[in-house]
Design a protein around this nucleic acid. Structure first.
Lengths: 254, 254
DNA sequence: GCATATCCTCTTATAATATGAGAGCTTAGA
DNA sequence: TCTAAGCTCTCATATTATAAGAGGATATGC
């Protein structure tokens, strides 16, 4: 195994602490929080400050520096996510001979970041496009894991247009469905967009355990038996975990 | 002088290179670009990857990881900038007994991040508020340093409402004014908002030398003699440099 | 299908470098 | 003036990063 540069890890931990403190904690406090001797912490913040990753307002008030924002200049986190996820999606698509999607929630809509077609192309989504959230597997997963306040706002805004007999159009019913999704840990699109199309979707978590994306497999309705769903959910979750580990290593590592 | 943690500096340089490469360069190339032996670079990216600061799409394709975005969660870069700048503004305000502003360009408007009142409060700006760009000192500085394409778009869109006899309302005249501002390195608001109010403004640069904010001093028109302006510009520029050094240390340091 | 190149990973001896205890400084406030 | 909080510095020590080079994996070309 490749050895790690420990000072770098310490510095990052400290940087995270600085970010979280938002100017409210002195170096001594920060040092204690991340279990570093004060003098070490001091050396590290000085270095970070020299790099512009940390700025000091005045004694006892540290902030993440503007240089951090700058690192992201010209970079689309969505694009990065899509690229890194692609091989995982491709695997799933090939294995199930079905269509796999990766999506995020943005502005009350679902944005599809990546799509891999394993069998017939039954779904007419395109990468980068946005669709309503209330009627798809990924959409419902993402809604379910929204902070309560935002979820309720979504529910109160509607309207939820009926696309098939199975579409959930009643806010209360949708709320129940979302709760069920949280409990079960996955969502089913039971032909809610098209009678002939079903799908199962699971959440992807970031390092804080917050849902940041959703992963789904869609196929012809008749293939979605109970056993199929059970197996698929297991595999999806596994893959989801692998993807999270790749994108947000702190979840499991160290 | 506090000693620096060199491995951290190397790692940051490498991280910057990764960010700039946007997935287009292999580790060997990146290592060369930042003058690191391949094996060292390898150890460092592995560590960075373990922290989620770098993700690998596949061999030879590295990206900044989503964790970087996450560091900025709940943090307003503007707020940080304002806080760090405050002491500098306060100094200037006290020294000149005039009003000092820090502002950025955003969505074709100028956002005032910080205001410090040294003498009489002659200007009715408030922190966080937005104003038109074409008629103020900071506004013109920021417009002048826009990329040409954006600047031309601004000029073509108008309208530039006349507020006083001195307001520049003709796009061509405004274009000339902006060129002059680039040449001179500072802007004058020659009573373009209020007859009785003048101001001088200078740009603030980030580590890449790009103008990212503007700093101004405003006062009663009769105080703005040629000599006063000359002196003020010198001092403003000096302060601006100090502020940049604080916010973007790479400008001068290392 | 083989050859070649590219890119990455690992091992290891060596020395550089980070480490952290503690002492001392600076500043703000009482 | 005194106190305390917060920061900075020094320095002996050994941990730790270092980088050359060899080897492995994967892609590219013929």
């Amino acid at each position: 195994m490749t050895p790690r540069t420990h000072s770098l890890e310490k510095a990052f931990t400290l940087l995270t602490a600085v970010a979280e403190s938002r100017g409210k904690q002195s170096l001594s406090v920060l040092a204690e929080r991340v279990n570093l001797p004060l003098s070490t912490a001091h050396r590290l913040v000085s270095t970070l400050e020299g790099l512009g990753l940390v700025v000091r307002e005045k004694k006892g008030h540290y902030f993440i520096g503007p240089v951090v924002t700058d690192l992201m200049r010209n970079i689309s986190p969505h694009d990065v996510m899509a690229r890194v996820s692609r091989p995982f999606l491709r695997d799933l698509a090939k294995r199930f001979r079905m269509t796999v999607h990766l999506a995020v929630y943005e502005g009350e809509m679902v944005t599809y970041l990546a799509k891999e077609i394993g069998g017939r192309n039954t779904v007419k989504t395109t990468e980068g496009s946005q669709l309503e959230a209330y009627c798809s597997g990924v959409g419902k997963v993402l809604l379910a894991h929204l902070p309560e306040r935002e979820r309720e706002r979504y529910l109160s805004e509607g309207p939820f247009v009926r696309l098939t007999d199975n579409t959930i159009t009643d806010p209360a019913a949708l709320r129940d469905e979302l709760h069920r999704i949280i409990r079960r840990g996955y969502a089913i699109d039971d032909g809610e967009i098209l009678e002939t199309l079903k799908c199962v979707a699971v959440p992807l978590k970031n390092q804080h355990g917050r849902t940041c994306a959703a992963l789904s497999i869609s196929g012809r309705a008749e293939e979605f038996t109970q056993t199929f769903i059970r197996n698929t959910v297991t595999i999806l979750k596994e893959t989801g975990r692998d993807m999270s580990d790749r994108l947000y290593p702190s979840v499991s590592g160290l």
